Structure formats: structure tokens, C-alpha cells
Computed example of a mutant assay.
Amino acid sequence: MYTADSTAWAEAFGVHHGFVDRALQQRLRRLQDMEEELRALYAAFRDAPDDELLLSIRSATRSMTQAVECLQIAIRQISRGSA
């Protein structure tokens, strides 16, 4: 479910309506950084003898990638709504 309701986003982050884009961009950068860290962790553990650990890290990476994509879509929708 995606929403372009910038008022709801402003309330969710506790920012003024005019700062929603900045708040979303900051959080997007944080998510992207975390995604990159997860990828680095996976690479570091790639040869570990624990398959469950590797599957968990891969799953977390996929989930983080989805979160990044969802936030990017929300940002685009809000941008279109305010244009």
C-alpha cells in the first residue's frame, strides 16, 4: 500500500508539512546505508559454516531492499502530488 499523503507523513515524522521531502530523503539515505551494511555483512559471512545465518542475512537484505524501494515510491508520489 502506497500513499502520497504528505500530511500523514509529516505527522508520522513529527515535522512541518514543508519539511516532509527532506525528512523522507534523510530516512531514505539511512535505509540505503543499512542496506549496504547488510550486503557487506553477507559478503563477510559468505564462507561461514552456518547456513541459517547466511539465509537470515540474505532475507534481511531483501527486506531492506524492499523497504528502500517502497520509500522511493512514496517520495516520487509525494513529489508528483506537490508539483
Rank of each mutant, 00 (worst) to 15 (best):
Y2I: 03
A4P: 10
D5T: 01
D5N: 06
S6T: 06
S6R: 06
T7K: 14
W9L: 08
A10M: 04
A10K: 02
A12I: 10
A12N: 09
F13D: 06
F13Q: 02
G14S: 07
V15I: 03
V15C: 06
H16G: 09
F19A: 06
R22E: 09
Q26C: 13
Q26N: 15
Q26F: 12
R27T: 12
L28C: 07
L28T: 04
R30S: 15
R30Q: 10
Q32M: 09
D33R: 10
E36F: 08
E36V: 04
E37M: 14
L38G: 03
R39C: 08
A40N: 07
D47P: 13
D47S: 12
D47Y: 14
P49K: 05
D50E: 13
D51I: 11
D51V: 14
L54A: 00
L54C: 05
L54H: 03
L55Y: 11
L55V: 09
S56H: 08
I57R: 00
I57N: 00
R58S: 15
R62V: 15
S63W: 08
M64E: 03
M64C: 12
T65H: 10
V68C: 04
V68N: 01
V68Q: 00
C70D: 15
C70F: 07
L71P: 06
Q72M: 04
Q77S: 12
Q77M: 12
I78Y: 01
I78C: 06
R80Y: 10
R80H: 09
G81Q: 07
A83G: 14
